[in-house]
Amino acid sequence: MTSGGTAGGAVISASDLNLVFQTNDGSVQALKDVTLSVDKGDFVSFIGPSGCGKTTFLRCVAALEQPTGGALSVNGMSADEARRNRAYGYVFQAAGLYPWRTISKNIKLPLEIMGYSKSDQDARVKKVLQLVDLEGFGEKYPWQLSGGMQQRASIARALAFDADLLLMDEPFGALDEIVRDHLNEQLLALWKRTEKTICFVTHSIPEAVYLSTKIVVMSPRPGRITDVIDSPLPAERPLEIRDTPEFLEIAHRVREGLRAGHSYD
């Protein structure tokens, strides 16, 4: 495998990453010359229309897809090695909790697989339930929880083991706006407390601007990066920050970037 090995502090470093899918209708360039570096403690959002490769990039980092060209390193090793070292937690768009396990048992799933001791499992479940504000819900079954609570439980599951990197693929995409605002606030607080590095795929411009220290704007056909914005917003971000001129200015720049990607149609 290739290794990026450029930046010392970079958690993820990709250079000229390419991925071509072979489909029945010919080949599709899902990623074209993607070069990006994510530093420790960053909150990076990937935004763009469907087919821009944002999810594909995340899946490459998770070694769920194999790039067909370029170099990618995660924690200084190949993506596949990083996966085998359990370097990241992954949160899918659907919470994907097992209906036959209680919330606690769902959170224990990765811990059981990774061979944590029983007492350690219990301590970790208690800790992460607190982190996502679900104390007292451990013995409930998923169907007894709302969609937002289920997604929080799935984030807790990704936080339960010691991965410094959190990959989130549109985790709040299926939730309504009010729940989403609430979860965004909670996620920021959680990020600050845990000091994890987070990669976050989203469709929503306000969500991307509100959460991120770095916003990656992507565009489709072929999937590529059109703009990378380092957010000047302060670390302390109440929801009202979304009405300030600074916030609107970044949102404007993201929108411009998205539009530029669409210049051909």
Partner: peptide
Amino acid sequence: DQLDLLRTYSASGLQSFVKL
């Protein structure tokens, strides 16, 4: 997604059979 999730834990074949 369910199977991918287990891959991110690098679960063994037996584990994904028994647990999922």
